[in-house]
Structures are given as structure tokens and as C-alpha cells.
Amino acid sequence: MKQKTFSRRLIGRVLAYLLAILIALWILIPIYFITVAAFSPKDVIYSWPKSLLPQTISLETLLFFINAQYVLDSLWNSVKVALLTLVISLVIGAPAGYALARYIFPGKDAFRIIILSTRAFPIVILSIPLAVTFMQWGLYDKLISVALLHVAMALPTTILVTSSVFIGVSKELEEAATVFGCNRVQAFTRVALPLALPGLAASAIFTFVLSWNEVFAATILTIQNRTLPARMFVQLAASPIPFRFAGGFFILVPAVVFMFFIRRYLFSLWGITLK
């Protein structure tokens, strides 16, 4: 009997790992090929059959891409928009989430639903009147306008995620902080905030990736100051193949790097990773 349950558990575990590996490969293989292609010279990219390992590594394709008009500018634009979006949505969203988690106030339930209602607007519908308004306000074709729209898209999740993060931080801890000499603000910054950090980081990743990937609003709200995805959305289809690979690589890398960088916070539970 014991042998049987043991072997069954072993099979279950093997299957789970197999599944995980399959999913990882499904995601990683295309990324791998894009990366290899991005570092291959033109003639290798066009050659057929492809080999699995990179034949010759060269920066020719990447340099070609980078030196193309506007690429570095729009890459920089993308970073700026994503960071702006991240900061604004955390500055607005985290206090709102904290209020939802800690206080009982009139209209709390209505507030929770109204937050979600902005998500009910398709961006297509939202973007056009926004474009008009931004033109009138002189914000059109500015990065801040794209960031603001991204904030509008990200806020509902930011608020709801941070609220559940703060619910997870026991109120008793903040009370203990006030008993031992903190005022309300200090209790928040010294106790609640550090404990909420992993959750807030997760929410920040989400916002960053959302802004980084968003194409439609960015395309409508800008002409000159496009973010990288918006520019590529317009230009890649009309570009030579090596240029497309290099572009794909450039869109991929920052998101992946950012995730690795911030993942530590996501998985770290205090005292466990600190060992």
C-alpha cells in the first residue's frame, strides 16, 4: 500500500513538472528564436533551414534597428510613459486601496464598483474623446497624456490589488506601532508600508507591463512622441524581416528584465528569503 501511494505521488509530481516545463518551453522557445535572430547577421536570418544554435553572433541587425530613425527615442518614451504610469497609479491607487482596506465610510461599496466601471469602457471609445480633450488642453502628442490614459486603465486593478494587500497586513500591527510611539503616518510608513511592499511591487509590475504593452491608446494620442510598441505597430509590418526580429527583441527585453528585477519582492515573504 505504502509503495503504491508513494509511486502515485511520484507520478503526480513528474506530471506536474512536465506540464510546467511544457508551458515554460511554449513561452521561452519563441523568445529564444527572436533573441537568436536579433543577434544574427542578415544572411543567416534569411537562410533556410534554421539551426537551433546561433551560428554567428553579430550586432549588425540590432545596430541596424537601433540606428533606425526614432527607435531609441521611442524606446526612451516607452520607459518614461511606463514609469510615469507606475508612479501616478501607485500614488493615487495605494492610498485608495489603503482606505478601502482600513476604513468604513459611506458609499464604500458603491466606490468599489465605480472603480471597476472605468474598465467597462473600451479604450477605442475612450481614446477618441480623450484625444479631442487633450488637443484642447494642449496635452496632445505629449507623453503625459498617454501615461494618464494608462493610469486610468491600471487604476482599478492597482486599487483593488493594493486594498487586498493592506487587508493582509494586520491592523493590530499598526495599532501596536501607535502604542509604541508612532503617530498614524509613522505607523503606516514604518510598519504597514514595508510589509505591503511585496504586494505593491506585484501591482507595480502589472502596471508597468500594461503600459509597456499598450498600443492602441498610445497610437491614437501621439504622432511624433510615440512609445516603442505604438511606433512598431505602425512601422514593423512595412519593415524588412531582420528589423522585425530586432524590434521584437527590444520590446521583450525590458519587460523580462523588469520582471526578474522585481520578482524578488513578489516571492519574498519576510524572514524566508532573508535567511
Binding site: S170, E172, A176, A177, P194, L195, W270
Partner: peptide, 10 residues
């Protein structure tokens, strides 16, 4: 002293 200890985990 609190019921659930309220020891700061961080």
C-alpha cells in the same frame, strides 16, 4: 501586549 502578538514581521 496584543492577542495575536502583533510582533512586527519585517
Amino acid at each position: 501586549v496584543f492577542q495575536n502578538y502583533a510582533v512586527f514581521p519585517h
